[in-house]
Simulated assay, not measured.
Amino acid sequence: MTTRTTKAGRTLTDADLDAIADEVESTEYDVEALKTRRRGRPAMGSGPADVVPVRIDPELKAAIEDRAEADHTTTSEIIRAALREFLDVA
């Protein structure tokens, strides 16, 4: 008898595995949709994004955080928007 344990700690017996296999075999999956499904964060531009560490003074950081809170967004999005506007990049 084969037993497997899930990440949650549940032990699956042969009967459990057979039931799962039967369910998978009886369900029609859109294989192409499953292949194209991406994991992780959505792409932000034409390619993978880079992390760019930047030092900022406490007053500027506080202003960014205040604006992010007021706009109900993240500090990263505020910084990206400011850079796009400053550099005139879409």
Rank of each mutant, 00 (worst) to 15 (best):
A8R: 09
G9P: 03
G9A: 10
T11S: 11
T13C: 08
T13A: 06
T13G: 03
D14E: 11
A15K: 09
A15N: 06
L17W: 15
D18M: 12
D18A: 13
A19Q: 14
A21F: 15
D22T: 01
D22N: 07
D22G: 07
E23W: 15
E23K: 06
E23S: 10
V24H: 07
V24D: 04
V24G: 02
E25Y: 12
S26R: 14
E28A: 08
E28N: 07
E28F: 15
D30Y: 15
D30H: 13
V31M: 13
E32R: 14
A33N: 06
L34F: 15
K35V: 02
K35M: 08
K35D: 06
R37V: 01
R37W: 08
R38L: 14
R38H: 08
R41Q: 04
R41K: 08
M44S: 05
G45S: 09
S46G: 12
S46H: 10
S46N: 08
P48L: 12
A49R: 03
V51L: 13
V52Y: 13
V52G: 04
V52L: 15
P53V: 08
P53E: 06
P53F: 14
P53T: 05
P53I: 07
P53S: 07
V54Q: 09
R55S: 12
I56L: 15
P58F: 13
L60R: 02
L60G: 00
L60D: 00
K61C: 08
A63W: 07
A63R: 04
A63P: 01
A63Q: 03
I64G: 00
I64W: 04
I64Y: 04
E65Y: 05
E65V: 00
E65Q: 03
E65T: 00
E65M: 02
D66W: 09
R67L: 10
R67K: 11
A70H: 09
A70T: 02
D71Q: 10
H72R: 13
T73W: 14
T75L: 11
S76I: 00
E77S: 06
E77H: 03
I78R: 01
I78M: 04
I79V: 12
I79E: 02
R80P: 00
